[in-house]
Every structure is written in C-alpha cells, then in structure tokens.
C-alpha cells in the first residue's frame, strides 16, 4: 500500500533500459527534469502512482514512487536531500547528471 498522500507530490522512477531518473509529466510522459513534472495532491497523487505502476508493468520504468515536493517559482523541487540529488545528479560531480545538462 502506498502511504497516504499529504502535501504536494510528483511521481518518479528510473528508466528500465538506461536506469536514468525520470519524472511523470504532462500526458503521463516520462521526462528527465523534475521542473516539468506534474504535481499532484491527495487522491490524484495516488491515481498518478497507479498509472505509473501500469507504465512499470509494461517495462518502460522501474520502481515508481511518490516524492514530496515544494513549489519554487511554480516548479516542483524535491523536499528530501535524497530526491534533490536524484533530480540533479551527484552533488560532488556538477559535471554529471541533469544538473550538467545531461539526460542521465
């Protein structure tokens, strides 16, 4: 069972083929930037997670989960350090990951 949704959420997963971090965005497309992720609240978050699990079942992504976010200038930003690092890339290698303009 997913934990009860409270506050703002986005859905994240890793792509099966590359392992890259992805975020559920408009039209339920998986995107590489958290900034374009769709933000959900309450029951809509649970519903989005269910759709993500269906996507996982077809082998596009693995391990989808709900991630706590806040809005910064209208764009979602992960609350926990773990998800912030996932959304950007290693804090010790600014040349790698999404923070460096890479897709992974």
């Amino acid at each position: 069972m997913a934990r009860p949704a409270d506050g703002l959420k986005v859905v994240s997963a890793n792509r099966l083929d590359s392992g890259a971090v992805v975020w559920l965005a408009a039209d339920d497309q998986w995107q590489h930037h958290i900034a374009v992720a769709s933000v959900f609240e309450g029951a809509t978050a649970e519903a989005a997670l269910e759709r993500a699990k269906a996507s996982a079942a077809t082998g596009v992504v693995v391990d989808p989960s709900l991630i706590d976010v806040t809005l910064e200038n209208g764009a979602p930003r992960a609350v926990r350090p773990r998800e912030r690092i996932r959304s950007l890339g290693p804090s010790v290698r600014a040349d790698l990951g999404v923070q460096a303009g890479r897709r992974q």
């Binding site: 890793n14 392992g19 971090v21 690092i85 996932r86 890339g89 290693p90 790698l96 992974q104």
Partner: peptide
C-alpha cells in the same frame, strides 16, 4: 538475476 551479476539500480543509473 541482475544482482547475481553484480548489477544494482542506484540513484542515477545502474
């Protein structure tokens, strides 16, 4: 199966 071949899924990739 992948773990038996030393392959983990970590934060950014495998």
């Amino acid at each position: 199966i992948r773990l038996m071949n030393g392959l983990y899924l970590q934060l950014h990739a495998y």
